[in-house]
Amino acid sequence: MNRLIIKRILFYFGLLLAIALSPISQAAPIIKIEIKDHLFYPSEFSVPANTKIKLLIINNDPTPEEFESYELNREKVIIGNSKAVIFIGPLSPGTYPFFGEFYPKTAQGKILVN
């Protein structure tokens, strides 16, 4: 009886996981951001609301940087002279600041969603 309940719970949990992980990859627009001398280029850009965006971040500095945004709930270390991919959105209209956690004084930027 108890095993049956556990099996059922596992089945529904697996089903939920399968739904959550099911193919969702519509081609997201790509925005390229470059890091150079601990600055983001572009440091400010606009994206459409309610759209998933793929951020391609290229770190041209020899040192690592961490892309971070409290508003976007995103955090990722990007090794020196390498690139990284971060998906954001769909977002509601507004301003979403981001910064480089390792060099926060200079590495600042914002995404305008409209």
Partner: peptide, 11 residues
């Protein structure tokens, strides 16, 4: 997992 698009982001 949302950051790498393995899970769907919702509001």
């Amino acid at each position: 997992l949302m950051q790498i698009d393995w899970l769907t982001q919702s509001p």
